[in-house]
Design a protein around this nucleic acid. Structure first.
Length: 396
RNA sequence: GCUGGAAUCGUCUAGUGGCAAUGACAAGAGACUGUAAAUCUCUCGCCUUCGGGCUUCGUAGGUUCGAGUCCUACUUCCAGCA
């Protein structure tokens, strides 16, 4: 079982530590979206420097290229990518929902590679095997998102997700039994801070230890389905839970209240795909979620939409052409400490690669640190004040 | 000086008698939530009560129901020959 220590509780919210074979994750935490084993525009060093504790990659993308076998050969996701720290993989289930031209059956999903047109089939078993090869610490069960928001479609998707979960668990346990537990050989894990902050001189844990499985709760916006799904998932021998199929903060509080009141307290909960809007993070934590991942911050960054405490701004707007102040004067990210809005504006207008790098550093830092601050506020009992202060300013 | 050719929205450009006129870039703005996203959308002569109105293709005339398009002159630029 994945070790998860809860240090403090406040209603449904909690402060804790997830102990993975590649290091600890202090929760609540924002996990960087590294779909193709890279956080777009950022190096792993930049991710470490901005304070990221974990990354999440996508099984669907990685089996197409470079293949799960290759990542296994490289020593697993953390080693292959040079991240070194805790890792998650998403199952590929979300792609069933988001990609065109997929054939879904009870067995699994058939699709063509967008790279070379080759035929692929992903099943609960194959997703588990591929995730096992990719070797992230935490795996998501292969789930099925509904094709529409209707009750019937949601119910059908939930039921299939549950049937697939059972198959995932069987395959996951079979794979884990073969696992040779090497742990970290008593050496310092690469995810821990380095003395000099950069060079890595010691060998890292390679695919070390057992890998862990999260069940995925479905049910859309229907609380009875969410409750049913949460009960089902809660009854299974999994290490934690992903909460999937959430696309907006509207109604998320009630949904999470329902789900997280049912899920066992002693296992971590990951809110899949949410975190583009700061309110997602506050509501998510308040109602019992421990980790988050979202492509929003880095995608926004690449498109010139940058977070500030007063809301998002579009740095490409003409009004920033001669704004020689930092994006945020009180932000400690590399971007804000060194560069002005006018310069960022110029980098974007001239389509320089560095524009995306600096913007991604800032946006990723911004969300990572919101969650860090939320964690601190829970620890010292000021969550309500911090939430109110932050959100009233951001959404003014 | 002669002979050809060319002048169209900030730039380059399509357009050879029929509705302010093509495309690209630039410019202005918006979207983005488990990333087929370095992507996508909208605006881009002026005015508008969003129905339309007005003024435009170097300049000035002309032919025609109608001209960016045909004719004449002029201006500027390009090429070739002197």
């Amino acid at each position: 079982m994945l070790k998860f220590d809860i240090k403090k509780r406040d209603g449904l919210a909690r402060v804790g530590v997830i102990h993975t074979p590649h290091g600890d994750i202090k929760t609540p935490a924002f996990v960087g979206a590294a779909t193709r084993a890279t956080v777009k525009a950022l190096t792993m060093k930049e991710m470490r420097d901005l304070g990221s504790q974990a990354i999440l990659a996508n099984t669907y993308h990685l089996i197409l290229r470079p293949s799960a076998d290759l990542i296994k050969e490289a020593g697993g996701l953390a080693e292959y990518s040079s991240w070194g720290g805790p890792t998650f993989t998403d199952s590929g289930g979300f792609q069933i929902f988001s990609l065109p031209d997929v054939k879904i059956s009870e067995n699994g999903v058939k699709f063509k590679s967008y790279i070379d047109g080759a035929n692929f089939e992903m099943t609960p078993e194959s997703s588990m095997r591929d995730q096992w090869k990719i070797g992230a610490d935490i795996h998501m069960a292969f789930d099925h998102l509904a094709k529409s928001e209707s009750y019937d479609d949601m119910k059908e998707a939930m039921a299939r997700t549950h049937r697939w979960l059972d198959r995932c668990i069987i395959e996951h346990e079979r794979l884990n039994e073969q696992f040779e537990v090497v742990r970290d050989n008593g050496k310092r894990l690469a995810s821990e801070p380095r003395d000099d902050g950069s060079e890595r001189s010691e060998p890292r844990a390679v695919c070390s230890g057992a890998q862990y499985l999260y069940a995925v709760v479905q049910g859309g916006t229907f609380n009875d389905l969410r409750a049913e799904s949460a009960k089902y998932c809660a009854s299974k021998p999994v290490d934690g839970f992903g909460i999937g199929g959430v696309f907006t903060a509207d109604g998320m509080d009630e949904m999470l209240k329902t789900v997280n009141s049912i899920l066992p307290e002693n296992k971590p909960r990951h809110l899949l795909g949410m975190g583009q809007e700061p309110i997602d993070l506050f509501v998510g934590v308040e109602f019992g979620c421990d980790t988050f991942d979202c492509v929003g911050p880095t995608r926004m960054a690449r498109n010139g939409s940058l977070y500030t405490k007063d809301g998002r701004i579009n740095i490409k707007n003409a009004k920033y052409k001669k704004d020689f102040t930092p994006l945020e004067s009180d932000c400690d990210c590399e971007c804000c400490k060194n560069y002005t809005k006018a310069y960022l504006h110029h980098l974007f207008k001239t389509d320089e690669i560095t524009a995306k790098v600096l913007a991604s550093i800032h946006n990723e830092y911004f969300v990572v640190h919101i969650v860090d601050r939320i964690r601190e506020s829970l620890e010292n009992g000021t969550f309500v004040d911090y939430k109110k202060e932050f959100l009233s300013r951001y959404y003014r």
